[in-house]
């Protein structure tokens, strides 16, 4: 565990720094012409976040901040998934300035399933197919205007998706 402390701390520091740059960037478009979404413009694969076992730790590792529920996020997932190996899950949102969308399956061995960077000009909506080990809540996270919002839905799984 100690081995992952270094890069994790470094990443958080980087995110803080990037957020600051974004704030400054808003008032100084000439110096920071492109990275309006600086916090998610870091295209490095978030290895640490994907290694976290529970939802809270994964969200902390990925975003480093709390999320609040929003009714402006529409999370489409089946009530009951007969095959946990392939669960179609989609999210759309009317929130403005979306920079990323992520999916968490709380009860999976590793909570974070997928995270999508949404650059300016890309519609804040994603559809994908995820594995679910068992019945779990699915959390869609939407990063909008530097804040983190979420929508949660419980999906019942009749046959687990981990091949067991």
């Amino acid at each position: 565990m100690t081995a992952s402390f270094g890069p994790l701390a470094h990443r958080r520091l980087f995110l803080k720094g990037a957020g600051l740059v974004a704030l400054i960037g808003l008032g100084n478009a000439v110096l920071h012409a492109t990275p309006v979404f600086a916090a998610t413009n870091d295209n490095k694969y978030p290895e640490d976040a994907f290694k976290q076992k529970n939802a809270g730790e994964a969200i902390k590792a990925l975003y480093g901040r709390d999320h609040e529920a929003s009714d402006k996020i529409k999370l489409d997932a089946p009530e009951i998934a007969e095959n946990g190996g392939v669960v179609p899950i989609a999210v759309t949102t009317s929130l403005p300035n979306v920079t990323s969308i992520s999916f968490i399956v709380s009860e999976n061995p590793f909570a974070l399933a997928a995270s999508y960077h949404i650059p300016e000009g890309t519609v804040p909506a994603v559809a994908n197919r995820l594995k679910m080990a068992k019945t779990s809540s699915v959390i869609a996270l939407v990063e909008s205007g530097g804040k983190l919002y979420s929508a949660t839905k419980e999906v019942k799984v009749t046959v687990g998706g981990c091949g067991g």
Partner: peptide, 17 residues
Amino acid sequence: FLADWGTAVSKDPYVKF
């Protein structure tokens, strides 16, 4: 569009944006 994926993305992945 950039996707970061973990192991919980289904076999033969599908994504739409």
